[in-house]
Design a binder for these strands. Sequence first.
DNA 1: CAGTGAGCGAGCTTCCGCTTGACTT
Length: 740
Amino acid sequence: MKTRTAPAASASLVIVESPTKVATIQKILGAGHTVASTKGHFADIPERGDAVDTENGFAVRYRLTEKGAAVIAELRDLLDGATELVLATDADREGEMIAHLLVEFLEPTVPVKRVRFGAITPDAVREAMANPTAIDASLVEAARTRRVLDHLFGFRVSPELWSKVRTGLSAGRVQSPALRMVVERERERMDFIKASYCSIEMTSGTDPVFEAVLRTLDGTQVAGSGDFDEHGEISRGMRVVDEVLAGDLVARLGASPLTVTGIENRDYRRRAPLPYITSSLLQDAVNRLGIGSKAAQAALNTLFAAGHITYPRTDSPHIAPQAVAAARAAAIQLFGDGCVPEKARHHRAKNRNAQEAHEALRPTVMSRREVKSAGTNAARIYDLIWRRTVASQMLDATGTTTTVSMTTVAAGKRETCVFTVSGTVIEVPGFRAVTGDDRGEPALPPLAVGDVVPVGAFGFTPHTTKPPARYTEASLIKALEEKGIGRPSTYAPIMASLKERYVWSRRGERALIPTVTAFAVDQVMQKCFAALTHEKFTSTMEDRLTEIVEGKAGYVDVLSAFYLEGDGTWPALSRLIEDGRNLFDPRVTPVMSFGVHPELSEEAVLRAGKAFKSRNGAWMPRPYLACGDRTVPVPDATEMDTLTRAHVFELLVQDRSPRTIGEHGGREVRIEFGVYGAYVRWGGEIARMPRDLDVLAASFEEIRGLLDNPPEPKARKAAAGTGRTRARKSSVARKPRKKR
DNA sequence: CAGTGAGCGAGCTTCCGCTTGACTT
């Protein structure tokens, strides 16, 4: 709440972006200053496809948003009695634009200063206030260019998806490459060819017991999981041990002891981690705590509002000097004098697109070891942040990794078998002492060349190679951050928006699985707009924006190259749109083709389908398989790597008429086929057919358990609805989907 | 959740990046 008392005679109105910063800065500046906030952007270009006049110098007009009008009205009142206006918005591109728009909409008659706080500490704030500058017009120009480019991308490309795939779909500079990565990964999984191999292990008869693995067989390397490519082919010069050979070898090895034939020592070093930035924290929240990006970001906001941590949306690992000192002191207090490097560490962002307007995520007060409400997301995340902050100032973890080679000769064919085992002795635990990820390295008994190692047993384990893992929220955020796509304030919203339309996860799992719709959309993007979904698109754009900041290019140059003319790297968007209209017709080209069906003698294809209204009024996408005039619906939330050619062919000829298989409690039990696959119905009750049962052959006995304990009805978490229940006009913040 | 894919055409959808509340439980 802002007070409406008349400002003091020589009051200066200081405007920041975040209301939660106001109190802190007010306290630092004291009387004579009134601190207020814009609550982020308050003006924007209209949400209409024709908001940008591409014919006339890409002219746009920023207008106040509904909430923004109220903010500006309030700031105007405060400005009334002020003698100067201080623009203290964030020291990044968007912050410069907000400062510029403040001048445009407030129309101040008093002197205007621009200050940039490096951190919200008394020293940093006072120093910034003492060194005011002016608004950087070229930074504003770069911000406007970014805004208009994103608008053109989103609002001119999305309609192409409506005509080619289905209404309501979306494309954008950030979401389209993100979707591309998820879909591409799924394709890699579909094309992946598994390979089988065995590992042969020796369990020692020593104390402590250790396990060594067969590395070479008669001088030839034995293949492990990393030695196969995606086609299941083995790298050259490697040997695959199959089950027959493995069983035979183990039998012939008997219990013959090994002789140590080599010992190799290597230095071991793990660098102390950088302090958290938003993206790395969200990754750890997901990976280490199992907290989703949305909940994690919300917890960060809570911690910030309570004054426990620094600003929660940051791309800089830099920490203010006093905080570095406090972190070192905390480390020394816990682990003694020798646990920190002589010189304090200072970190800069690795990503060259980082704007570093805020400090790293760190506790505001290092002596606050924990926050109240133990066990909550906020408390657990605070603990992560506290530990990481201390860890970032501690020594690297160092030690020695020892690899021991042991040799024996198998009976019979007398192959020479070399087994190896590695162990690491940590000499300096360094930061690991505080982050707690001190993985217990297996201890090895002291061994020397020539020693005989008694054997407990030989054995073997069959393995198959695994396709590349699907992205999770954590790994996708990491990939986006590394490629400079998206900003700290947008990672969590991007994940939410992908989940709303294009990806889903199995219950209780984190892997992001693209929907059929996602494949259809990505196909259009690849066929018609490939250059725009390239992972380098954003970094190329950032290079152009840098040229604007450096005065080497202008707003019209960059947008004209993007939209009208194209340049070396970008084909003109207007041209792509026009060409794309003739280039790709989804009625001709299906989402996927499986070849000619051997019985139906027509091409089997997967189509995205249009949306149908479900019982509860939501518009649901309905993809289907088609072959001639036969169609079979498939859920949008399908794991595409299960749609193998054989499975598709089978689905197309499957008898899908309902059949009665028994009776339960006086009611007929039937297997029926719905749009989401087979299900069991008895009376009014319904249960999805378990995945592992053969739909055609399932007997009454097999589904009996289902009848007694019907599974919980699945929460309709809208894997991918195009239908929205939320109405969204103007730039009012997104509301969560209403529960039905 | 649990049976639709024609054709016509009205009226609608959609971006990224800043930032909080105001609803409940």
